[in-house]
Design a protein around this nucleic acid. Sequence first.
DNA 1: AGACTGATGTCAGAATCTGTCATCACGGTA
DNA 2: TACCGTGATGACAGATTCTGACATCAGTCT
Lengths: 189, 189
Amino acid sequence: MRPVGRWQPGAAGRLQRAAMELFVERGYDQTTVAEIAERAELTERTFFRYYADKREVLFAGSSLLQDALVAALREADEGLPPIEQVVVALEAAGELFIDRHHARRRHVVISAHAELRERELLKMAALSAALADGLRARGVSEPTATLSAEAGVAVFKVAFERWIAPKETRDFRALMRESLGDLRVATAR
Amino acid sequence: MRPVGRWQPGAAGRLQRAAMELFVERGYDQTTVAEIAERAELTERTFFRYYADKREVLFAGSSLLQDALVAALREADEGLPPIEQVVVALEAAGELFIDRHHARRRHVVISAHAELRERELLKMAALSAALADGLRARGVSEPTATLSAEAGVAVFKVAFERWIAPKETRDFRALMRESLGDLRVATAR
DNA sequence: AGACTGATGTCAGAATCTGTCATCACGGTA
DNA sequence: TACCGTGATGACAGATTCTGACATCAGTCT
């Protein structure tokens, strides 16, 4: 059941929104966890029950992305070359990218703080590792699995940068395709 | 001149050694900065004068690597494809890798702690960005510069993993070449 | 001699993060 | 109805990381 309990529901979401607002208003390190919690009408202690550290509140969606990615990889045509399978999976997971405006705001906050860029890199590395696992599970051997995953994620980063660029309107899938082509040009013998 | 002053010289190095020892002895989070400083016969405050945070003490060498890399890239044959230039630079910078034993111990410590893996990823990203800058400075345009740098660093990571693998004896350059070949296989159409 | 410099020490304090126990509405059960 | 768990939250104490401000003090320069 959905026990809508005696507390205001959606504590995690409230913390996320409060954090985003404050980070945009006054910057990441000018914002304390106590302030985030206060705006969400919770306590600092509760913040740390939902998020392992202050950075994590900005990366709550990344495990959804990873799950979508792994699922999509399982549905990719096994006949394709590994890098293609990875790109197909990343394209499919890109369906989660709907709100360009929100993505841009978030990106501004993250790129302004080394701590947050660091965390984002860790999340990307986790995606890459999950993809490599998925490939190995389908019989792709090392180092092809790792390299295909890493290359795929590099393509993904470039495509994402393009997706949030000002005035860009093409959809994510098209940008992935284009970026994969660019990678092929760059790595060709 | 080199005023060998009134203090024990080599404070930064002593802190590094003390930190490494303690991390190996009892683990990264079981070690406080105060303990590191104590073993180095300094105070906690002085630790933070040399290293911006607790993690940095393990990454002091990475700016040397980056400098060597940028220098090597400047000497690479401009006629080569960008990815080759990157790999050549990374091979040259690999000359810094002498002590496999030390590299292995360090790697064990780092991979055991998310905080440290995070920092290592940031350093790698910095290398990648520096390589991309170097390529752009020689006229390589986007997104080729970024993708070549990212792909090169992926190759580097694989080569490094191999270099520190038990029983591996080939030199770093050979492993870079092999890994580049693997990347080409993985990304070929 | 006296001023200056630079690495270090001392101290206070803010912020992050953890452990532990208390609270208290809700839901089920006797 | 009365009782009892359960789960989200609060309250509080404390360890650790990291910063700012000021003091110290051997050597150097003039």
